[in-house]
Design a protein around this nucleic acid. Structure first.
Length: 204
DNA sequence: AGCACGATTAACT
DNA sequence: GTTAATCGTGCTC
């Protein structure tokens, strides 16, 4: 049975639901030449609107965060710390700035390419951070604004069964250390339980 | 024009 | 646990 691509309707919903339901879905990067790089999403965070003081949209609409204001199902890719790219997927209605940050993957296809891009990292560290997975998959500025729902894109998501509730943990978002409350502590981070991810690595 | 800092990572004590 | 790396971005002057 051929896997189905996640379409616009999946992303054009409440960001918290999208973030939760992205767990277990497969992120696929099509390499030039047809090689597939992919991994299952195991961690994601919601950033919701310009009132959310942890969200880049708190500055209003700017050149950098423009993609977040666009239609759902596009990539919002930004540069930070002078060296790292981060991948988000835009959610909700066009004109409302919200997105889900993809924070970690369990690597599946294209391991040799990922190892080349992330030279020196063991497989368990290949895609276990938001900047690491962008590096491993070769995601950079050129992906900002790309529509992940179109047939010919080189980046998209494939639909897989939902991760069951018992396998999911929820908590505060990471790295918002100077953000005012309640935004620093709202439980908008979703993860597949670490012990389950460890089990996935052991199966290989 | 200048400045402080970031949705992080790897290396080190 | 602490810190350097490294530069685009948004804010202040």
């Amino acid at each position: 049975m051929a896997p189905r691509r996640l379409g616009r309707a999946f992303f054009a919903r409440q960001t918290l639901n999208v973030a939760r339901e992205l767990l277990g879905q497969k992120l696929v990067r099509l390499h030039p030449g047809g090689v597939r790089l992919s991994g299952w999403i195991i961690e994601a965070e919601a950033y919701i609107g310009s009132d959310d003081l942890g969200c880049h949209a708190r500055h209003g609409r700017t050149a950098r965060n423009e993609s977040m204001w666009g239609p759902a199902g596009r990539a919002y890719v930004y540069f930070t710390y002078g060296m790292h790219w981060m991948l988000n997927i835009v959610t909700e209605a066009e004109g409302f700035p919200a997105a889900v940050l993809i924070r970690a993957l369990f690597p599946d296809e294209g391991l040799p390419s990922m190892r080349r891009r992330r030279r020196g990292s063991p497989d368990v560290r290949l895609t276990d951070g938001p900047a690491k997975l962008c590096r491993a998959l070769g995601i950079n500025r050129s992906f900002d604004g790309v529509d992940l729902c179109r047939a010919e894109t080189r980046l998209f998501l494939e639909s897989l069964p939902q991760v069951d509730e018992a396998s999911v943990t929820r908590g505060p978002r990471v790295g918002l250390n100077t953000v005012p409350e309640p935004w620093q502590s709202v439980p908008w981070r979703f993860r597949v339980r670490p012990e389950i991810v460890q089990g996935l690595f052991k199966e290989d």
